[in-house]
Amino acid sequence: MKSGSGDFVEASQGVDPVAGATVKPDLEDPRVVLSLLETDQVVAAKQKTRFGRKELSLGVRVLLWGMRIYVVVMLVLVVISVFRALHPMH
């Protein structure tokens, strides 16, 4: 899916075919800008523009901490389980 004719179609959406005048694409929207670039340009552009931090609500923070505790507890249980499997009690 490298840039090719498909890109031309998308890029040409900024041209009004009836009036023949060029309509400027919305360059404020980073997704529009990225869709107009070649792959190498996308890589370069991404180094300069980053999505900002998302404001995490209390619910999201509780969810993420809950998941984190879940993983830590489960990893401990995995270690216990494997220890038992490798050292079966007679």
Binding site: M1, S3, R31
Partner: peptide
């Protein structure tokens, strides 16, 4: 998907 250069139309 990013490395392949896929766009929303893909």
């Amino acid at each position: 998907v990013v490395d392949k250069g896929m766009q929303p139309r893909d």
